[in-house]
Amino acid sequence: MPSPRYWREIPQRYRLEANKCKKCGKIFFPPRLICCECRGQAFEKIRLSDEGKIITFTVIRVAPQQFATQTPYVVAIVETKDEVRLTTQVADCKPEDVEIGKKVRLVFRKIQEEGKTGILCYGYKAVLV
């Protein structure tokens, strides 16, 4: 069984659930309890757009153990259409095809395996469009 630490992040990782401050409109991913712009504490739940663009990126050649078999892989900061940024792998591409400003779509993928038993952990990755 996946750990509580894993499953409590499922709404964000599987469905890109975020929250939007009812007072100033700022969107937080992952959701927060207090708005760092206006200190508001009332939020509405929203789902982030799966469309975005690459702000910056790197190609990881040396990875920690749980990603060691995946190298080389691209990791980018992606800004979604709602102007929310997140860190994500860019999958299904050659590293040389990735550029700052390129459009991407966020898709559901396996991210890593948890613990010694290797429970599969999922989340979002970007693909070039």
Binding site: I60, T87, I100, I111
Partner: peptide
């Protein structure tokens, strides 16, 4: 770093600074 939203997705410290470097160069 942020374990759940950076490290979970495969970033490393050299990777974070590499992303700063790439943006700075650009």
């Amino acid at each position: 770093a942020d374990q759940e939203y950076e490290v979970y997705n495969g970033i490393t410290f050299p990777g974070l600074y590499a992303m700063i470097a790439r943006a700075h160069m650009h």
